[in-house]
Design a protein around this nucleic acid. Structure first.
Lengths: 207, 207
DNA sequence: TTAAAATCCGAACAATGTTTGGAATTATAG
DNA sequence: CTATAATTCCAAACATTGTTCGGATTTTAA
């Protein structure tokens, strides 16, 4: 029972991650160097390696925090809404998260080290996506509820998995474009987003 | 009239870009170092700076080539198709380009240095997107033809620009997810893509 | 042929991620 | 309480990166 040591260890670990997050948000991912990170919390660069094995591990940990925040943002929408509105709302939450935390979002989906899906057993890949507390898992559950309630029409070759995939690509395309190629784009795109989501909803509800 | 010199200059410039493209395709963007690049074409790293001002310029030039190839892929679809099918086909071409050249695609939309839209006059941003020979310009033209032919229904707050934006986000989301988070995903997603594009088409065609 | 310009490269510089060796501190055992 | 072990921390060094500098070599212009 050595809680005192480990508590301090954990606290320092968190301080490192917090500093990393701040640097990324303020100066971009390129400015995240081990020395700058160490300076900010009054450590030396070498000292960081007692807490993380590499810079990649630190970035991966920040990404994991981002996934949790994304999940939290999507989980915060009223679950009492009817399925279609529920799906609409969590889609908007996904987009809003990307617009409010573009550095986070881009880190998670572009800068991040690619999870080695190539050799991993596909069951593990499946679980990582659908697991509890994951944004994609929440999406799947919401759609499943819509199917159960008869609000979404299952067609041959377009069932739960395909619906979830389609919904994800939809909001991801919006989020990605608006945080990269269309960053600072002058026009207001919220109305178009609404139209797109509305049309998608209609597509799920049947012919 | 000093064509001999400039011809050689241009040829070397192109050799540098070709080598950069090969390295990125074979070993990823992270493996693109000035020394590795110089080695491949029997130059020294310092010599490259006679042809490009920085590594960023080289990457930007490779991205520009990628944009041209993307445009060519979309331009290659039969323009005689009816507007809705035409739009469908260039959307598939966009996705296919991303799947066949994921390194290229990701370089263009994530690794690439962000074009400084912040201070540029918005007219220039508009021209860069809509200009002749640009993929987005081709998309806009196709949709304009669909509107003119009465195949796509213009609604208040959802006109040409919004339609083009929506179409782009749609295929971009698919292309981006399948080249990053869903790379090596075991399931076949082509059928779901078809469903999504089909539903989008229906949305454009009216209530 | 001579002067000027364009090419090309070895060497060096600053900054990066990481390793190493050991000093200082803290916990555990006898 | 002491001695041993484990943890924490850092200065220094290493390899690799993008880039600059000075000069040598080659090509063009006069």
């Amino acid at each position: 029972m050595e809680t005192k040591r480990t508590r301090r260890h954990l606290r320092t670990r968190q301080a490192i991650l917090d500093a990393a997050r701040v640097i990324i948000a303020e100066e971009g991912p390129a400015a995240l160097s081990m020395r700058a990170l160490a300076d900010r919390i009054d450590y030396s660069a070498a000292g960081l390696y007692e807490y993380f094995g590499s810079k990649e591990e630190i970035i991966a940990a920040v990404c994991a925090e981002g996934q949790q925040r994304l999940y939290a943002a999507m989980h915060a929408v009223d679950p009492g809404l009817p399925p279609a509105e529920h799906l609409h709302a969590i889609g908007l939450a996904y987009i809003r998260f990307a617009l409010e935390h573009p550095d986070y979002f881009l880190l998670m989906f572009t800068t991040a080290p690619p999870p080695n899906q190539a050799d991993a057993p596909s069951a593990a890949v499946h679980d990582a996506l659908h697991g509890e507390g994951s944004a994609y898992g929440l999406l799947v559950q919401t759609i499943q509820r819509g199917i159960d309630a008869g609000a979404f029409l299952v067609r041959p070759g377009f069932g739960l998995d395909e619906m979830a995939y389609a919904a994800w690509t939809l909001v991801h395309g919006i989020a990605m474009l608006r945080t990269t190629a269309l960053r600072h784009y002058p026009l207001d795109l919220a109305a178009a987003d609404e139209q797109v989501l509305h049309n998608f909803k209609r597509g799920l509800q049947g012919t």
